[in-house]
Amino acid sequence: MKGMLVVLQNDVGDILPSRGFLIVVIIIGVITLGTAVGVPIALNSWLASGLAWEEAKPLLELFMGLAINYVPLIVLFSCMATWATDPIAKEKAKGPIESLLATPLTAKAVWIGKSLAIFLPAYIIGFIATLIVILAMNLASILPTTGHFVLPLPEAFTSFLFLPLLMFALILLGVIFSLITNPVIGQTIIIFVGVLLLQVVGQVGGRLWWLLASWDYALYNLAGAAFIGMIAFYLSRSLSKERIILSSKGKWA
């Protein structure tokens, strides 16, 4: 546990001052700002038509569901694609990973520490971006018009907990592949599954949009997280220092 925290602290310290982090923060900032300004403008014109609160509430929850589902998804995915495997590839090619494994750290501590280091900054950025969008929608349009604050629970759970859990499971899977095989494989898995998720959410949002505000959708995310997490933990049985070292000598290095 302590070893994992040391790896986490070190890797977060590497990610935060990096150029990749700055670029992601700028991109996410632009998306968040656009959503925080654009959605309330659209909402205002819609609410101005004079709907009663009882009629407006489910529609507003749906509307918010659509908005806040995309924000954490895009944020987490962008961060993962940027940070997930490149540092591991460099560490394997240049040698720090071998030195790290020659210490009392276990291979599992390195795996979970590195995965958390990728996930946590992404989660914090995603959390802040989603919160900004929720507050902007409520403060700039919903609260002044209806007098109520809207935060639908299923969407809140999905955005702040289940979707991040799904992404964390995906990171665990990607990092394990990066450690025991060629890091490009890990990166490909993360990008492939990430794009698949964006597509699914896009399709659901376009055709079955009412699903996004449901507990069913929240639980699908939770089930997805559990499924990918179980695969990652099953594969972690094959995670050993020897596998990491021998895979570091591959052609890609």
């Binding site: 070893g3 040391v6 070190n10 040698g95 071998e98 030195s99 020659a102 009392p104």
Partner: peptide, 25 residues
């Protein structure tokens, strides 16, 4: 240990490199 590849982190200072390992131990 000192391995064939020194395993140092180029983007860290000498102090930070040692600090990291001190924490690991």
């Amino acid at each position: 240990f000192v391995l064939e590849s020194d395993g140092l982190y180029d983007n860290k200072t000498a102090e930070e490199n040692l600090w990291y390992y001190a924490q690991i131990y």
